[in-house]
Design a binder for these strands. Structure first.
Length: 975
DNA sequence: GCGCTCTACCTGGCGT
DNA sequence: ACGCCAGGTAGAGCGC
């Protein structure tokens, strides 16, 4: 995200409704059209020869830039309506704004103040031989030229980072990072691989197909192949239709289905097909010339021994194949992050990448070695205030074009470019802007691919999309961030925030602009490399597991990763990848066999035991290690093993009665089981091993986390209709077996006289258990159910409110709080920090005798909060309730919830609000009942509503003590 | 992916 | 026309 043009002085604290707005939500809602939207919007405006943007001119007069194409007025027709809107906006702002400069210079004759530069700031290109553009088709030896002919190496050695399809060459191109030169090398396929798909159309005796395909230009040739059908477990002979162009797959597929033939493997992206057929593992090192050869991959004798000893036979060979990808170190590639700031078309309005009609005024660049630089555009009236201490190298440009070309030149030194929202904003903006400034499109090293934007000779990772990946958000980053804005993510993960700006971004001084702009790149790079390159290493590991390139893995959800791994495994084993219909037909028409408890859900989920109400000392929490993945492993669950009529031997899933095939190993069961065992048996232990160095432990912790992300999602995808291998019977069997497992453990626990207080899905809370009974149940579960039951937590004390998913556990000085009001993100800040105080009081509860004393302290605390509320001692920000808009404001048809009411008030004020925005509001006494924080005053606040809020928050604690709220002395008087 | 809780909103019945 | 109440639903956010 480049621009945060919030004019409000308290932008940091209160302007939250605006943040992250231009990002994921819009990209998603665009769906398939997203790619087109970002596509180049403009052709070069005229044939007029662009003036060379040389440093020499810059040095002579920085005022020359007024005649640059950048200063050209856009066509009147496009400009007119916008101008009107700007005026309106400004008019409404006037009364609330302190007028700082009474005289606005008229637009037609901008008054240009002289830019005075401190000596230390380097001028852009003080040398005069700095040509950024070469003549068409002409290379200038020894100089960089923007128009670089695409160069490809005949051989390459290094880490495979990506495979793309190059339409001009009609071939796959691999991007390989060579650590010896620190460069990305492009290698064009020399193995002769071509796009294809499979069909059941048989060839005649003459070897000719019944349809003449030669009339299609992109048709190449035919072949007959044998594949094993994973459903029938029989070999099938199919015709392979080979084309010259991936697009032709679509055309020819339509021709065949039209004639009633069936097709397979026609909707796999070509570059993935290439990876699968060549059995490549992105993220691993290779030598390639005429063919692919694995380099010497790191392996560990010790690991190999461990696999042979502790993995079951059905997983052993696969584990031996897979071991390398977790041991091979992650490539240390040169990384860079950049961010641009664009002149805003008005306060509260964002520049449009499609138009790119506003100048880019600043560019910041930060690399992983800590090099920082800012390129600034000298604009009329822009100046350095001298008040801001600047970090890194700051350079001033008179030419916007030269500045942008310089950015591209610098990016070309790195292998991977990171942005935050670069897919939707920065990169397409730069492209369209350069076109507007007269640069020929073919000279700009930016390419628009199907659903993202990247660079010709290097890779682009948009972190906005990475942090939007739900499985990473929850399993790798522990749900620490809710919003996916640069601000929210970096605050949660780095503990750092964006810089605040003193006024509307267009008007800030150059040094303040530079500092603000730089911080965004610093944060972006920080998110990649914090915690020993956690994010980068996760991406590398996920590439290796999912068998997809960096750009692909960083832009797809976990279901695409799992699909990709499974497809790769199908190819490895010579299995036909089934179509959706194949699976549907196999399962047959069947309704779910377990009724969901919640309406609108498809099938039944987990068991949640009714917890007691009260205070319990000495509670042990047992929990199944990866329950669902273990179920998938133990019960051979896979799309082709559940309800498969071609099966001989089967077992029945409890309760739901699905027939699970035991003839052969199910492919997803094997994959999930493999990762589950690697995680539980090897890498969780390695991550904690004292025999290893700190660095090694961190790496194994990342390995463990990557597996967790993967296997935890594996159950969910089978219940998601969008998943290519969707199977409701699989999902339904997983939860049914999970329930049976918990119930059986519960039964055995009662035989052993263990007192189970509570349990949810895969956990059991045991009250003061004897050691041997505990060992006994763990042993039983291991031997009879084949599951690992671990002691997850030991609580000195647990408070149960009596509600499910709602408790507090204390262990030493720390505590865990679950589900309570005080924990929710939409709870006002003052309740959260008062809760922290309450927790301190509760931590003093060491023995049962302390109960009375603790209750007294609680009463005092509640009274104190009440008093503070009535005296209005909390600030608006502390009282704010923040709720996310899950839909666009106009989509709320049935109800108008409070946060939507607040959002509508904001819209009234001209503040845009869309899906994904977080609305901060307070409860007020007026008719509407709510007000956005930025529009409210402390006097508007409805105190009684907040007293209610406090009651509901703390009642949950009191319930544990068996005290009802209104029974609390002293409190009664206040209500 | 499903299960659970909470608040606010909406609706319909009833009484004034 | 309005208020009160009960019961159902929408919407959000959590737990696993």
């Amino acid at each position: 995200m480049a621009l945060r043009n919030d004019g409000s002085p308290q932008a940091g604290g209160q302007g939250r409704a605006n943040e992250g707005r231009s990002s994921a939500a819009s990209a998603k809602s665009e769906g398939k059209g997203g790619g087109n939207d970002r596509a180049p919007a403009k052709q070069p405006q005229s044939q007029k020869q662009p003036e060379p943007a040389t440093g020499k001119r810059a040095a002579r007069s920085i005022l020359d830039f007024m005649s640059e194409p950048s200063a050209q007025e856009p066509p009147q027709t496009a400009q007119r309506p916008k101008a009107e809107r700007i005026d309106k906006q400004e008019a409404s702002e006037v009364p609330t704004k302190v007028q700082q400069e009474p005289e606005e210079p008229p637009r037609s004759e901008p008054e240009v103040k002289e830019v005075r530069l401190p000596e230390t700031y380097a001028w852009y290109a003080s040398s005069n031989d700095y040509l950024v553009e070469a003549q068409q088709g002409q290379r200038v030896p020894g100089q960089w030229w923007l128009f670089q002919e695409e160069t490809y190496a005949a051989q390459a050695s290094g880490y495979l980072l990506e495979v793309r399809y190059d339409g001009d060459l009609g071939k796959a191109v691999a991007f390989i990072y060579d650590p010896s030169t620190s460069k990305v090398v492009k290698w064009v396929d020399r193995t002769g691989h071509k796009p294809y798909f499979l069909t059941n159309m048989e060839l005649g005796e003459d070897g000719r197909p019944p349809i003449d395909l030669t009339k299609y230009k992109s048709f190449s040739n035919l072949a007959v192949v044998t594949k094993r059908d994973p459903i029938t477990n029989r070999d099938v002979k199919l015709t392979k239709i080979i084309t010259n162009d991936p697009l032709a797959v679509k055309t020819l597929r339509a021709v065949l289905t039209e004639k009633g033939y069936r097709v397979w493997e026609a909707d796999i992206k070509y570059f993935l097909n290439y990876i699968y057929d060549s059995q490549l593992i992105p993220g691993m090192p290779y030598d390639v010339s005429d063919s692919w050869r694995q380099k010497e991959w790191k392996r560990s004798e010790e690991l190999e021994k461990l696999i042979k000893e502790s993995f079951t036979e059905d997983l052993r060979d696969m584990a031996l194949d897979w071991q390398y990808i977790f041991e091979e170190p992650s490539p240390k590639v040169p990384k860079v992050a950049f961010d641009i700031e664009v002149v805003a078309p008005g306060e509260g309005r964002f520049p449009e990448p499609k138009e790119a009609d506003m100048p880019v005024m600043s560019v910041s660049i930060v690399d992983d070695k800590g090099n920082k630089s800012v390129l600034l555009l000298a604009r009329p009236a822009s100046r350095f205030s001298g008040r801001q201490k600047l970090e890194g190298e700051v350079e001033l440009f008179d030419s916007e074009r030269a500045m942008l070309l310089e950015l591209l030149r610098r990016l070309s030194r790195y292998a991977v470019v990171f942005t935050f929202n670069g897919d939707n904003f920065d990169v397409p903006y730069i492209y369209n802007r350069l076109v507007n400034l007269g640069v020929r499109p073919e000279d700009i090293p930016i390419v628009f691919l199907q659903d993202y934007v990247t660079f010709k000779g290097r890779l682009h990772v948009d972190l906005h999309r990475v942090f939007d990946i739900k499985a990473l958000q929850s399993y790798a980053f522990g749900n620490k961030y809710r919003e996916k804005s640069l601000e929210a993510v970096s605050e949660a993960l780095l503990g750092q925030t964006k810089r605040e700006i003193s006024t509307f971004l267009n008007d800030v001084s150059l040094d303040e602009l530079a500092a603000y702009n730089l911080q965004d790149s610093v944060l972006t790079m920080g998110l990649v490399i914090f915690n020993n390159e956690l994010t980068w290493n996760l991406l590398v590991l996920l590439m290796r597991i999912s068998k997809s390139g960096l750009e692909e893995v960083s832009r797809s959800q976990v279901s695409a990763w799992i699909k990709s791994t499974l497809y790769w495994e199908h190819r490895r084993r010579g299995l036909l990848i089934p179509s959706r219909e194949d699976i549907e037909r196999m399962i047959g028409k069947q309704a779910p066999r377990s009724a969901a408890i919640i309406k609108d859900k498809k099938y039944r989920g987990a068991i949640v035991l009714q917890p007691p109400q009260g205070v319990f000392f000495n509670v042990i929490v047992l929990d199944f290690a990866s329950l669902y993945p273990s179920v998938i492993r133990n019960w051979n669950l896979s799309y082709e093993t559940v309800d498969n009529p071609y099966c001989q031997k089967y077992v029945e899933a409890p309760e739901v009665g699905h027939r699970i095939c035991m003839d052969r190993r199910g492919i997803s069961s094997q994959l999930v089981g493999l990762l589950r065992d690697f995680r539980v048996k090897v890498y969780k232990k390695k991550a904690k091993s004292k025999d290893l160095s700190e660095e090694e432990r961190i790496w194994y912790e990342t390995v463990q986390a990557a597996m967790k992300v993967y296997i935890n999602a594996s159950y969910g995808v089978f219940g998601n209709e969008a998943f290519a291998l969707y199977s409701l019977p699989v999902a339904e069997s997983v939860t049914a077996i999970g329930r049976a497992t918990l119930l059986e453990t519960l039964r055995r626990a009662s035989e052993l006289n263990l007192h189970i207080l509570y349990g949810d899905t895969d956990s059991l809370f045991v009250w003061d258990p004897p050691k041997d009974a505990l060992n006994e149940i763990i042993k039983y579960v291991q031997e009879k159910l084949g599951m690992d039951l671990d002691i997850d937590k030991t609580f000195r004390l647990v408070l149960f409110s009596g509600l499910k998913k709602n408790y507090v556990g204390f262990d030493g000085d720390s505590y865990i709080i679950k589900g309570m009001v005080a924990k929710k993100s939409n709870t006002p800040e003052f309740i959260k920090f008062e809760t922290a105080d309450v927790m301190k009081i509760l931590s003093g509860l060491q023995r049962p005798e302390d109960l009375e004393k603790t209750l007294d302290l609680l009463r005092e605390k509640v009274q104190e909060i009440y008093t503070k509320l009535r005296r209005r001692e909390y600030t608006l920000d502390q009282l704010a309730i923040s709720v996310m808009m899950s839909k666009d404001p106009m989509e709320y048809k049935k109800n108008t919830p409070q946060h939507v009411k607040a959002a509508l008030l904001l819209i009234n004020e001209g503040v845009p609000v869309t899906r994904g925005d977080i609305i901060s509001f307070v409860k007020t006494k007026d008719k509407v009942g709510v007000k956005p924080v930025r529009l409210a005053r402390l006097a508007d606040v409805d105190t009684t509503k907040y007293l209610e809020y406090v009651r509901s928050a703390f009642e949950q604690f009191l319930l544990a003590f068996g005290v009802r709220w209104d029974e609390m002395t002293g409190v009664k008087k206040l209500l």
